[in-house]
Write a protein that binds this DNA or RNA. Structure first.
Lengths: 161, 161
DNA sequence: CCGAAGAAGTAAAGCAGCCTTACTACCGAG
DNA sequence: CTCGGTAGTAAGGCTGCTTTACTTCTTCGG
């Protein structure tokens, strides 16, 4: 009922989509808007890398911790870290006292990229706020929080923004 | 400002996330909720396959048309069709009069899967509506439409619900 | 102090869901 | 009948992950 076959929906446009479709589309739009220029200014960096850079605290972090925060495996995260390191956006060093641990930090260029990423997201948020009006925008955010809410328990945090 | 480092955000939970994070998380939650049981009841079917099944009109469609509707390449879509066909959820036949064309249809099992998928999405929509209240839910939908809106032009429709 | 348990990280492979490039087979217009 | 365009296919690549199977190092119990 709520969902309409896409072919028939073609006539009524977006309104024919169910929530799943709308959320997906909104996210896609947002990502497109966020990464205009980003990939030019920071060669090699893709969305997932900007995301990872934002997760690294200024004081650095262990791969294991980053993996937990990002909700993925250590190996997966390790690959991203290697990628960033090869391109000079991150660095890591073995920790004195526990030589298993690699402490990962952003480089200066990594800082720049992270700031760019945040600024981009802010820019798009402002744009959306302008388009929707502050009131609607806040309601959107709150509603999303409410929808996501009941599962803060498991810290499988931050899916794939 | 709007975005907060994830580690510090940990304390304040979801509210520390920017819109991108919230949208991603909401979508993830929704998909998880939708596909409870789905993969048991219809072995081999993943989210993308349910989505494709919904795109096939009852009268069948050509791969090229499905690809356009789904916003992906013919090859990509062709792979999905093959996958569905191997598992008995779809069938296809060359069309008399134009032997290049493969007309793709759902099988009876494919119909069942599609109905299941729609029912699941409806169920989750109802659940969300209950949780949010009808008013907020409608506002969410409308706001999402508004946000996605300005680009109905390009028919890159239906990202990846 | 030793040895076992377990944590940090790595290596290799695989998979989902796509895309690009490069075709073949076929149709329809002139 | 040829020429241009369309339907579909084949092969390979890429991203962003996962699983399984390690190695290396630390720590804790005895």
């Amino acid at each position: 009922m709520t969902s309409v076959n896409a072919l028939s929906g073609h006539a009524e446009g977006l309104r024919g989509l169910h929530i799943a479709g709308l959320l997906g589309l909104a996210l896609k739009r947002l990502r497109e808007e966020i990464l205009v220029d980003g990939e030019q200014q920071f060669p090699g960096l893709r969305v997932s890398h900007f995301r990872l850079l934002e997760l690294i605290p200024d004081s650095g972090a262990r791969i294991t911790d980053l993996a937990e925060i990002a909700g993925m495996t250590k190996q997966g995260l390790g690959q991203h870290v290697d990628y960033l390191q090869e391109r000079g956006y991150a660095e890591s060093e073995r920790v004195a006292g526990d030589r298993r641990v690699r402490l990962v930090r952003r480089t200066a260029e990594g800082d720049r990229a992270m700031e760019f990423s945040r600024a981009s997201i802010d820019r798009v948020e402002q744009e959306w706020k302008r388009r929707l009006g502050a009131e609607k925008f806040e309601l959107l955010r709150e509603t999303l929080v409410e929808v996501c809410g009941p599962l803060d328990e498991e810290l499988e945090w931050l899916s794939r923004p």
